[in-house]
Design a binder for these strands. Structure first.
Lengths: 168, 168
DNA sequence: CCGAACTTTCGAAATTTTCTGAAAATAAAT
DNA sequence: ATTTATTTTCAGAAAATTTCGAAAGTTCGG
């Protein structure tokens, strides 16, 4: 098997996985491509490798940069911008987790809090049930959220060496 | 605020969150509706509350059942089927995590393993880089996977009481 | 300033996903 | 066996998302 075939397959798989997790295919593919490229790539190289348009490339690279898992690399004396992916997969995962928490979980938690603060009128049993569910979700999310914060603070070595043992 | 308004808002929020995590809106909404309903609901009740078609209702309820977070409830002497959601949010989260791992992560891991086993021809440096990335992802995914397995085995109390303290 | 070399934006087109509704299947009741 | 109640399926319609590409914007060297 040629290296390029293997890369291609990896890119496709990564794209499919991304889709299932609510990340668009192209973004995941660009990320995969950069992951397996030893050197930074320019927009044009990404375009031609993945057969996608300039606009699409630009939008998704920008998103990846927003997520903090890809960075611009400027080569001295070169006008063109290059891009490279964070290769430490632990860091990548932590950035994604932290960012999703911030963008998606926290707004929902605020919404939940508001729902709880309002006086409800209506059937006794139903109000009780509703409040219980909301409270449980809050508690759970708070726990999970703290767990994430804790996790994010660990460095890779501590995770590998210590936490892993906890789970046998 | 009326109870029904509050429920409605919760259902919408839950639906939006689901979308961002790659779960379809309706499935998340049905789940939310069942979560805040003290008693099991029939397909017709779900249809009218969420203003969706019978077919859509049926398909998504079936999926929720496949995920193991909703169950059929048969009332004695009644023909109609009712549905109720698992209310223990910890259990819900664990089922979802376990199931996603099984359905989505494991196939990718297999694909990665295959990619590694093949002999690559091509530029030395690039082959090295590629193999490194794949290996790192595998290691990470293995760790995460074990972590999930460990997590799934804990019961709620242990999580609340003990693990939480670990993260201060 | 000007123009070349790139980058970004944005509306429209293409693609993918989800939903509907009517028909088919199933199961109980008469 | 026939009618009645309910669930399931599925092809096409509708909606949502993603992608394209031309045009507008930026930046930099001269």
């Amino acid at each position: 098997m040629k290296l390029d075939e293997a890369k291609q397959q990896f890119i496709q798989n990564w794209g499919a996985l991304g889709t299932q997790w609510g990340i668009n295919r192209t973004m995941a593919q660009i990320h995969a491509l950069l992951l397996v490229s030893p050197d930074p790539l320019s927009a044009d190289e990404i375009m031609s490798q993945l057969q996608i348009s300039r606009g699409n490339t630009n939008m998704n690279v920008r998103d990846l940069i927003d997520w903090g898992i890809v960075e611009k690399v400027l080569k001295p004396g070169e006008r063109r911008e290059y891009f490279s992916a964070e290769k430490d997969i632990w860091k990548v995962a932590m950035r994604i987790v932290r960012e999703r928490k911030r963008r998606e979980v926290e707004p929902i938690l605020n919404a939940l809090q508001q729902l709880k603060e309002v006086e409800k009128e209506g059937n006794e049993k139903e109000v009780k049930e509703f409040t219980n569910v909301i409270t449980d979700i809050q508690k759970f999310a708070d726990q999970a959220s703290r767990g994430v914060d804790g996790l994010v603070k660990m460095d890779e070595h501590w995770f590998t060496g210590t936490l892993l043992k906890l789970f046998k």
